[in-house]
Deep mutational scan, measured.
Amino acid sequence: KKVLATKVLGTVKWFNVRNGYGFINRNDTKEDVFVHQTAIKKNNPRKYLRSVGDGETVEFDVVEGEKGAEAANVTGPDGVPVEGSR
């Protein structure tokens, strides 16, 4: 997949743990970017399912997906594990 941007910060708009996807709002362009649970690189080690929490700040790369921009290599800021869904 073509990389459109790297090390982008954003805020998780919503994430559905059961369906394994959601959207992140980019801090720079204010665009919403699709995020799938497989894109989460560093999950909260205390959680079994990969997820990001609503309102959580995350860092990610933006790649060209089949339906437009999507997140890849999702971590917390500066590469720490994500907090995950509460």
Results as ranks from 00 to 15, higher is better:
Arg26Ser: 02
Ser51Asn: 09
Ser51His: 10
Ser51Val: 13
Asn44Tyr: 11
Arg46Leu: 12
Val80Tyr: 11
Val17Asn: 10
Leu4Ser: 06
Gly84Asp: 12
Pro45Val: 12
Asn19Met: 15
Asn43Tyr: 14
Arg26His: 02
Val52Ala: 06
Glu56Cys: 11
Val12Glu: 01
Lys1Thr: 04
Val74Ala: 02
Glu59Thr: 13
Glu59Arg: 13
Arg18Val: 08
Lys13Gln: 06
Val12Ser: 01
Arg18Lys: 15
Thr29Asn: 08
Glu56Leu: 09
Glu64Ser: 08
Gly79Glu: 14
Glu64Met: 14
Gly65Gln: 04
Glu64Asn: 07
Gly76Tyr: 15
Gly22Ile: 01
Val17His: 12
Pro45Thr: 13
Ala39Cys: 04
Ser51Trp: 11
Val74Phe: 00
His36Gly: 05
Glu56Pro: 03
Glu64Thr: 06
Ile40Arg: 01
Lys1Asn: 08
Ala72Thr: 10
Val3Pro: 05
Trp14Asn: 07
Ser85Lys: 14
Lys47Asn: 13
Glu83His: 10
Lys42Arg: 14
Asn44Lys: 11
Thr6Gln: 10
Ser51Cys: 12
Tyr21Ala: 04
Ala72Lys: 10
Ala69Asp: 07
Thr6Ser: 10
Asn27Asp: 10
Val12Lys: 00
Asn25Asp: 01
Thr38Glu: 07
Val17Ser: 12
Glu83Gly: 15
Lys1Ile: 05
Phe23Val: 09
Lys7Arg: 14
Lys41Arg: 10
Gly53Cys: 14
Glu64Leu: 14
Pro45Trp: 10
Val17Phe: 09
Tyr21Gln: 04
Val63Cys: 05
Ala72Gly: 04
Leu49Glu: 13
Asn44Glu: 10
Asn27Trp: 13
Arg18Ile: 08
Asn25Tyr: 07
Gly79Trp: 09
Glu59Gly: 03
Asp61Glu: 05
Val80Gln: 14
Val58Gln: 03
Lys13Asp: 02
Leu9Ser: 13
Thr29Met: 01
Asp32Thr: 02
Lys2Phe: 00
Ala5Arg: 03
Lys2Gly: 01
Thr29Cys: 01
Phe15Glu: 05
Ala39Trp: 00
Glu59Trp: 07
Gly84Thr: 11
Gly65Glu: 01
Val33Arg: 01
Asp61Val: 00
Asp61Pro: 01
Lys7Tyr: 00
Thr38Asn: 10
Lys1Ser: 03
Ala71Arg: 00
Gly53His: 13
Val74Glu: 03
Val82Gly: 10
Asp78Leu: 12
Gly20Trp: 08
Gly76Arg: 15
Thr75Trp: 05
Thr6Ala: 08
Glu31Thr: 08
Val58Pro: 01
Asp78Thr: 13
Arg26Lys: 02
Val12Trp: 11
Arg50Ala: 13
Gly76Val: 15
Gly84Gln: 12
Lys30His: 12
Arg26Thr: 02
Gly76His: 14
Gly65Thr: 09
Thr57Asn: 08
Glu59Phe: 08
Ala69Trp: 09
Gly53Thr: 14
Ala71Asp: 05
Thr29Arg: 00
His36Arg: 08
Asn73Ala: 04
Phe15Lys: 02
Arg26Ile: 04
Trp14Pro: 06
Glu56Trp: 08
Asn25Lys: 13
Thr29Gly: 02
Leu49Gly: 14
Phe60Ala: 04
Arg26Leu: 00
Val52Gly: 06
Glu59Asn: 03
Lys13Arg: 08
Val3Tyr: 07
Val80His: 12
Val8Phe: 02
Ala72Asn: 07
